[in-house]
């Protein structure tokens, strides 16, 4: 598989929670228009690292990040960077579907509204429809855009959250175990969606399921105890890992 342009480059990233050293010296390059999977046992730091990429860790007082994380060559932890502006470019989908207690329409329109992406109602309608289509949920909800988002099924809610995230036209989409709360059918739908999203965005997905990583990602990073153990082509990681720890995890001996 040929290399694409680097979207995010992380160099020597350290993350501390109070006195705990949660992420140790991580270097990783995330390519544009690629699905990168972070795998590893629970508590290995993969979600923490993911949350560094759009500075969601800022909301936690005791969390401290060192090292560089460059988006398009610009350090996102630079003093001049407004996390609000950053998060508009780096969207995020969470583990548990978290639609706002608003209508489906308002859920999707939320991002465009706060970022001022639509000049008028027609444009906003357009964005909402486009986003819902991209999240492959349009056909299911187009007749009830005014219904509350919380009334959808789990899989629909998660796709609604994805639609909500893509509505702000991000360049990177971070997904933190997006399928862990879903049943197999909904999971399949979301995975299919992730594959389609790859054509427009750089997608980073944290997952517990190695099968899922194998199915949806092109690049895989294996985290263990806060260290990035191995990073490479998904196929290679799963068939021929270099590090014995990766092999142990994949074959089910640790985790």
């Amino acid at each position: 598989m040929d290399s694409k342009a680097i979207k995010i480059a992380a160099n020597n990233v350290q993350v501390y929670y109070g006195d705990t050293h949660a992420i140790k010296d991580v270097d990783v390059q995330i390519e544009d228009k690629t699905v990168t999977a972070f795998i590893g046992p629970s508590g290995c730091g993969k979600s923490t690292f993911l949350r560094c990429l759009n500075r969601m860790n800022d909301t936690i007082d005791i969390c401290r990040v060192e090292g560089d994380i460059l988006l398009d060559g610009e350090d996102i932890y630079d003093k001049r960077v407004d996390p609000v502006q950053l998060r508009a470019k780096v969207g995020m989908v969470f583990q548990k579907p978290n639609p706002f207690p608003k209508s489906i329409y308002d859920n999707v329109a939320y991002g465009p509204r706060i970022h001022g992406l639509a000049k008028n109602k027609a444009e906003l309608d357009d964005i909402v429809e486009k986003s819902l289509r991209r999240a492959a949920i349009w056909d299911e909800v187009k007749d009830r855009l005014d219904a509350p988002g919380t009334g959808l099924s789990g899989g629909q809610q998660q796709r609604l959250c994805i639609a909500r995230a893509v509505a702000t036209e991000p360049e990177v989409l971070l997904m933190d175990e997006p399928c862990s709360a879903l049943d197999p059918i909904a999971t399949a739908q979301v995975e299919e969606l992730i594959d389609e999203l790859r054509s427009r965005y750089s997608v980073v997905i944290v997952t517990h399921s190695m099968q899922q990583a194998a199915r949806v990602s092109q690049k895989t990073a294996f985290f263990h105890l806060g260290n990035l153990v191995e990073f490479g082509e998904t196929g290679q990681i799963f068939t021929n890992p270099e590090d014995p720890r990766t092999e142990s995890y994949i074959t089910g001996r640790i985790g």
Binding site: A5, L71, E74, D82, Q85, I114, H115, E171
Partner: peptide, 22 residues
């Protein structure tokens, strides 16, 4: 492995809307 260039303005410059929102 080239690096992408920022689209629609650098992150280092706050746009007017962000200033207003802040």
């Amino acid at each position: 492995a080239p690096t992408t260039k920022p689209k629609g303005g650098s992150l280092f410059e706050k746009d007017a809307r962000t200033k207003r929102r802040n």
